[in-house]
């Protein structure tokens, strides 16, 4: 076992030498490390005035990725993922609501495994080595080519390549969102006894109402998308608290994402307009042709504004099914 670990260490060390030459190679290693390594730790997420500590356990069991995230602050909340299936145990008053979700790139697996999609929008640069969560970390900056996205500073474990910290920087280089480990250890086991929720016997466990997940293709088009952004999904669902069907079209440049919500303005509904910033998120509301359009994204104001104004209804029904 010791010999194997040594071999692994040597392998990582040699990768590390290569990484210091090419920032994209270092990012590639970072993207894979989060998904392939076995680790346990605590990370802190901060956005605006919100801070949460989360305990994470991640294991790659012969290609099967299992993660347990336990939110340590505020309401008890546990997020389990197996591959792209996510199950959330969410305490609400005297109940625990079990929610099902589909795959997301959750921390620390926040970089896409196919980096080609972001290469046209960002420049990667290697920075200094800093200490994060007791480990040496190589800084890699993802600097955007234009003003339609923010930049990302990534701290990648100098030895294992694991993403230790990521900061979202606005166009004035101010940190507007941060997520990073405060404590981390590698696991050397394949036991799965940790992959179960902590059950509170005094609470009632209920499934969330399945209101969502209709993948559709319809006629909403954004004529003039900011460069680098592509439509990656379109779902139609009932947003909690809303009565009618709301369309949500999701655009992404590979790392930053923007949601566009479209719903018909009904009788008695007051239209929303204007602009708002919540932490790292820009929100823009707009009315087009009797429809309420709301654009939400962790992107600069001009990106959500451009998308909001460029939306139109295509009179020709589209025939291509998306998903």
């Amino acid at each position: 076992m010791l010999r194997w670990m040594l071999a692994c260490g040597l392998c990582c060390a040699s990768l590390n030498i290569q990484a210091s030459e090419d920032p994209w190679l270092a990012l590639q290693k970072t993207a894979f490390a989060a998904r392939e390594l076995n680790y346990q730790g605590v990370f802190v997420y901060q956005n605006g005035n919100q801070i949460r500590s989360v305990q994470i356990t991640h294991m790659n069991n012969a290609g099967r990725e299992l993660t347990r995230n336990v939110v340590l602050d505020g309401q008890p909340r546990e997020v389990f993922s197996e591959g792209s299936d996510i199950v959330i145990f969410n305490a609400k008053n005297n109940k625990v609501v079990i929610e099902k979700r589909r795959g997301q790139n959750l921390f620390p697996a926040m970089l896409p495994t196919n980096l080609d999609v972001i290469k046209s929008s960002y420049i990667a640069k290697l920075g200094a080595v800093e200490r994060i969560a007791g480990r040496d970390a190589q800084i890699i900056d993802l600097v955007p080519n234009d003003n339609f996205r923010y930049s990302y500073r990534i701290w990648s474990d100098a030895e294992f390549g694991l993403l230790l910290k990521m900061t979202l920087l606005d166009n004035q280089n101010r940190a507007i969102e941060q997520i990073g480990f405060t404590q981390l250890s590698m696991l050397n086991t394949h036991e799965l006894d940790w992959f179960q929720p902590k059950i509170d016997l005094s609470k009632q466990y209920v499934m969330e109402d399945e209101t969502t997940v209709n993948h559709v293709s319809n006629n909403w088009v954004v004529a003039n998308l900011p460069p680098g952004y592509r439509k990656i999904d379109h779902i139609e669902h009932i947003v909690p608290g809303k009565s009618g069907i709301v369309n949500q079209v999701i655009f992404s440049d590979g790392i930053a994402s923007v949601s566009v919500f479209i719903e018909p303005l009904k009788k008695g509904m007051r239209a929303k307009t204007g602009h708002k910033v919540v932490g790292s998120t820009n929100i823009c509301a707009h009315v087009i042709d009797g429809y309420q359009v709301i654009v939400v994204g962790e992107v600069p104001a001009q990106t959500v504004q451009q998308i909001a104004k460029a939306i139109s209804f295509n009179k020709q029904p589209t025939t291509t099914a998306n998903k």
Binding site: Y45, I179, Q248, G279
Partner: peptide, 22 residues
């Protein structure tokens, strides 16, 4: 709810964890 729906369904969202707050 718009922010929540965005955080839930957008493919890359660290804000997933703080959702319970708002």
């Amino acid at each position: 709810e718009y922010l929540a729906a965005h955080q839930t369904y957008a493919p890359n969202s660290a804000a997933y964890y703080i959702q319970s707050a708002s």
